[in-house]
Nucleic acid binder design. Structure first.
Lengths: 360, 360
DNA sequence: CTGAAAGCGCTTACAG
DNA sequence: CTGAAAGCGCTTACAG
């Protein structure tokens, strides 16, 4: 009968014990059992041992619901993410995901407070993070865009035993509970594969960075590394050019820079490892160069426009809403229910084309 | 001060009321408040109205934790999915996802019981489902592979007010709480786009169905419809051929059938809308026709082998583990926490290539 | 070192 | 129609 459960294909466990049961079996009071469960001092070695034995034997686990109620605690989660610059800004997606999750968990006495910063300004990041640190929170969900600035401040959280999770941007070698986001390198490799399919031969390509994106997170660089790695692995003889666009709103200036790159070259495909791909799409439209292949990242109104008219061939989407939604819920479950998630959740790469962009 | 919360960018709500508070304000006992909250009879219209007013005014919401504890209920979830035929079978992934979620929620007095059936045998499905119906469950997670057989039995669940959710296979017009899985049609469209990139021109293609897959779920047909729709929309002049493979383990017979299709044709690409793509990969290998392009579905050991050696060009993955994992957790949250999910969660299409299959 | 009791916010008989 | 009390399984002072 030992294996009857598995034979029946069930995980039912009808013998859930309570601390009262354990206390009775050990001939002690529930207070003493509680002390053992939480490793609190003031229990003789003998009783501690006997209680620990019973706990193991009966596979006793604390009833979290009762615990939560008894503690009667409110949980405050802090969220530190870039502010949205417009209604179609990428950062609306994670924020909306967080808000959705936040609505769902609000009833569990959990509140979410937002701290926003300008994603291009390390000082703004510092300021927002410092403001966050002034208050006390039970957990922090953040996008660690600026490397050193983040690391310095994470130490404060660790000193206070405040768990934190990353969304969208990874920061290796941290004690984060969770990273949820894209595998940037892989997305670049896929972009390269698609690009070489589009070009059909060993045509040259141009990687276009935007300076604004330059001084922060490593995702952009990882995407580029992934992109280039594909051609290296294929022992391709084609050339991959690089260019960085300045921080300007002057589309003419941008057009000229790209134009100069293309002239006298065999470049047939353009890869923009960020949502700023629309800048390049605008150029292609003006210059009537839409036959050149263009792959970029992220959904926003402009990008949607350009993928519909096929100026952009592929957009790689980051599931940003889901990052925010799932990140928040996972952190909540960690906090309230002691549910320890996998450290890295790499969301699948969502490929958008003219054909499927409508449905989103 | 009315908008101070939103100005501060916070959703903190420090004035959480309890039924005790409401009772005091209404000058009644908590029992009466409870009656109003749950629309139970035995309250005068006058007191009911005044309590309802107070509940609205103070935005009172029941403390779920306390409710769960007071009800002290165990939740039993039934899972009805195809059995795995081998260690590398597709159905291991959803099952493992369900098991993972099940481990996480077990502590919340929730048990999961599995009912398996042979995915090609409607009678086995009926038998497993009927067995499930003999016991009582609080919710059911199932893969509704056989249309009529499912619908008939769902009525029983509805009559008993048992919520149910679908994973992997959709069944429109049902009162399911949730469907989580792929958008089959879209995945077919993407496959077609990739195929036409691979072929570079208006070459002909062959869609290969396996008879075994034929008599059940609509996913396969939706994938094919999506695939064909792409070429129709493009006003392509190429021909799409169809062939159905019989239920045989005789690879030679299969090879001959495919071979006959290819001979005297301009077919350059093969689309297999199921995990059985390995059957076709084996043929291409034997016939030394690996230059033909091949797109299929799902991860298993054989498919991984053939994508690594580039016999298969693209595999479309269904995030099957995640379907099981998220499906179970969502159903749990619906059950325990009254969290109503979006009805249809379409997971992003995960594109596997030689380059990224390693990481999975 | 240990136990008895109150309390967390609900639900559920039971009494009136 | 309404209220008082016990109980769900924990935690937390407090008493000894």
């Amino acid at each position: 009968m030992l294996f009857s459960n598995s034979v029946l294909g069930t995980s039912k466990n009808y013998s859930l014990k309570t601390i009262k049961d354990i206390a009775a079996l050990a001939n002690v009071s529930i207070g003493t059992v509680d002390r053992v469960i939480h490793n609190r001092p003031g229990v003789s070695e003998k009783t501690r041992a006997s209680i620990e034995k019973l706990i193991k034997e009966h596979n006793f686990q604390v009833n979290k619901t009762a615990r939560t109620l008894a503690l009667n605690k409110k949980y405050d989660i802090a969220v530190l993410i870039p502010e949205s610059e417009s209604d179609s800004d990428f950062w609306n997606f994670p924020r909306k995901g967080i808000e959705k999750a936040s609505e769902e968990i609000e009833i569990h006495r959990t509140s979410v407070r937002y701290f926003y910063f300008n994603q291009f300004d390390p000082n703004a990041f510092n300021k927002a993070f410092d403001e966050l640190l002034e208050d006390s929170f039970d957990a922090v969900l953040l996008t660690p865009i600026f490397l050193e600035e983040t690391q310095e401040r994470l130490k404060h959280l660790e000193r206070r035993n405040i768990p934190y999770a990353f969304i969208n941007v990874e920061l290796p070698n941290s004690n984060n509970v969770l990273y949820i986001g894209q595998h940037s390198y892989d997305s670049g490799t896929l972009a390269a594969k698609l690009m070489s399919l589009l070009l059909g031969s060993d045509a040259d390509t141009l990687v276009i960075k935007v300076r604004k994106d330059n001084n922060h997170h490593s995702s952009i660089d990882n995407r580029i590394s992934g992109f280039k790695s594909y051609f290296t692995a294929k022992k391709s003889t084609s050339t991959i050019y690089d260019v960085v666009l300045p921080n300007t709103k002057d589309q003419n200036a941008i057009n000229e820079i790209i134009s100069n790159q293309l002239v006298n070259s065999e470049i047939k495909g353009l890869f923009v490892p960020s949502s700023k791909v629309s800048l390049v799409a605008r150029f292609l439209e003006t210059a009537k160069l839409q036959h050149l292949k263009l792959i970029g990242y992220d959904l926003n109104d402009e990008n949607i426009h350009y993928i519909k008219n096929e100026t952009i061939d592929f957009l790689i989407d980051q599931n940003a809403f889901f990052q925010g939604y799932e990140g928040t819920k996972t952190l909540f479950n960690y906090l309230i229910n002691d549910i320890i998630p996998e450290k890295n959740i790499y969301l699948p790469i969502k490929l958008l084309t003219k054909e499927n962009v409508e449905y989103l």
